[in-house]
Simulated scan of single mutants.
Amino acid sequence: MANFNTHLNTAFMVSGTMSLTIYKAGLLDDSGFLMCVALGTIGGLLPDLDSDHSTPIKLGFNITSFVFAFGLVMHWRSELSLLALIVLWLAGYGFMRYAVFSIFTNMTVHRGVIHSVPYMAILGLALTYVSYDILHLSLTVSWFYGLFLFGGALVHLALDEIYSVNLSNMKLKRSSGTAMKFYQHKDKWWYLLLYVILALLVYFAPPFEPFWQQLSDPAPWAQLKVGILPEMIKNMQR
């Protein structure tokens, strides 16, 4: 299994390269470019949320606990005294960081259903839905956000599968096939639930055809060639 730094760096490089290409094609603005890089990198860490001692899960729960406690204080700030707000802050943080974290880690098994393609597809589609229908972002940006989150997760799963091959004698390790999986019989009911949720998200997802038409239009990609050719000509004339 690849380590945290390998997942982080690889996801950042892949998402950065893809985002820059799309940005230069004019399909993303400055903020969209930065968000796609960030989402692709985050996606590259998501599958390890089911590992009790992984850096992503610890960091994720620390941030979530802070945001939860902050939200509680902001909601009750005008109704409670300073001392009560401090107690509420500490109680809210402790509840998320220790109680909820303990429940989550006890319910999940490393390389279980979370560490799978359908689970990551659900997260990607959910982000697309939230971006378009709730945050009211453009259709193009919404689909790119979901795809980059999903793509980063696929990079993570692919890396884990690559690391399951013993390159010295080209043998598969015992971990082979446990990373990028679509189904596991021992968790069949969980996978049934995943695919039901995935089917519902696909049905209610923002329209994909207009996004695909824009993506398959050769005009934006022609700009990349126009930008590259003058540099090649200049280099040849030197």
Rank of each mutant, 00 (worst) to 15 (best):
E161P: 06
M107F: 08
S116H: 02
T128I: 00
H75C: 06
M180K: 09
A69E: 06
L224W: 02
V67N: 02
K24C: 12
R174K: 14
S175G: 03
Y191Q: 10
F148W: 11
W212H: 03
T55Q: 09
L172I: 07
M236L: 12
A99E: 05
M96H: 03
Y191P: 12
L20M: 09
I22H: 05
K171A: 12
L28R: 02
A205W: 04
Y183K: 03
H110W: 02
I122E: 01
F70H: 08
G94T: 15
G71F: 11
L8N: 03
H110M: 00
K188Q: 13
S164Q: 01
M18T: 03
V165H: 09
P210D: 10
K173P: 00
Y23G: 07
G71C: 14
Q184V: 08
A158G: 06
I86P: 05
F66P: 00
K171C: 05
G60W: 05
F148A: 06
T6G: 12
V100M: 14
K234E: 01
I162R: 11
L135N: 03
L229H: 10
F208V: 15
D30W: 08
G60D: 09
F33Q: 01
A38S: 04
T108L: 11
N5G: 10
M96A: 14
I22C: 10
K181F: 11
S65R: 04
L28T: 02
S216N: 14
V67M: 09
Q223T: 12
S142W: 04
K188P: 01
H110D: 04
Y145M: 13
S216V: 06
N3V: 06
L139M: 08
D30G: 05
K181W: 11
I228P: 00
A126N: 01
G146K: 03
F204N: 13
Q213G: 07
L125H: 04
D52Q: 08
L46D: 00
D48H: 04
I86L: 15
L154N: 11
V87D: 14
F208M: 13
D160Y: 03
Y203F: 11
A25Q: 07
Q237K: 10
T41W: 08
L72C: 15
T105L: 02
F12D: 03
L28Q: 03
G92E: 06
W76H: 14
V113T: 14
E79Q: 13
F148S: 04
L127A: 02
S175V: 00
G71H: 06
A2Y: 08
G44S: 08
L167Y: 14
D133Y: 14
G43P: 05
G177D: 10
L159W: 12
F33T: 00
T64R: 04
I57F: 07
L192A: 15
H115F: 05
S164R: 00
G60Y: 03
L49T: 05
I103S: 10
Q237H: 09
L229G: 01
I57Q: 07
S216R: 10
S116I: 04
L159A: 06
H7T: 12
I134Q: 09
E231G: 00
F66T: 07
